[in-house]
Simulated scan of single mutants.
Amino acid sequence: MKSSSCVAAILSPSPSERQELALQVFTRTESVTNLAKEHHVSRKFLYLQVLLFCDQI
């Protein structure tokens, strides 16, 4: 595994954190921009998580 992949794996949110973030975006409890900054992820990532979350429910 490349070192950049290792860093990404360490810093990326866990599956349960991803689901919680998706729920927060979906319910609009906080702005997507603020959530992205707070969790060091992109807004695109958060919107993708919402799509995946909606597929599960």
Rank of each mutant, 00 (worst) to 15 (best):
M1Y: 01
K2F: 13
K2T: 13
S3T: 14
S3R: 15
S4K: 14
S5W: 11
S5E: 13
A8P: 01
A9N: 02
A9S: 06
I10M: 12
I10P: 00
S12P: 00
S12N: 08
S12C: 12
P13F: 08
P13M: 08
S14C: 09
P15F: 10
P15K: 12
E17Q: 14
E17S: 14
R18W: 05
R18H: 05
R18Q: 14
R18A: 12
Q19L: 09
Q19R: 10
Q19I: 07
E20C: 09
E20G: 04
E20P: 00
E20N: 08
L21F: 11
A22D: 04
A22K: 03
L23F: 04
Q24Y: 08
Q24R: 15
Q24H: 10
V25Q: 06
V25R: 04
F26T: 01
F26C: 06
T27C: 09
R28C: 12
T29P: 00
T29Y: 07
S31K: 13
S31F: 11
V32N: 02
V32R: 05
T33H: 12
N34G: 04
A36S: 10
A36K: 04
A36Y: 03
K37A: 12
E38L: 15
E38A: 15
H39K: 15
H40W: 04
H40I: 02
H40V: 01
V41H: 06
V41N: 03
V41Q: 04
V41K: 10
R43Y: 02
R43G: 03
R43W: 02
K44Q: 05
F45K: 03
F45H: 03
F45Y: 11
L46W: 02
L46T: 00
L46V: 01
Y47M: 01
Y47I: 00
L48H: 04
L48W: 02
L48E: 03
L48M: 10
V50R: 01
L51W: 04
L51Q: 08
L52A: 10
F53C: 07
C54G: 00
D55S: 07
D55C: 05
Q56V: 11
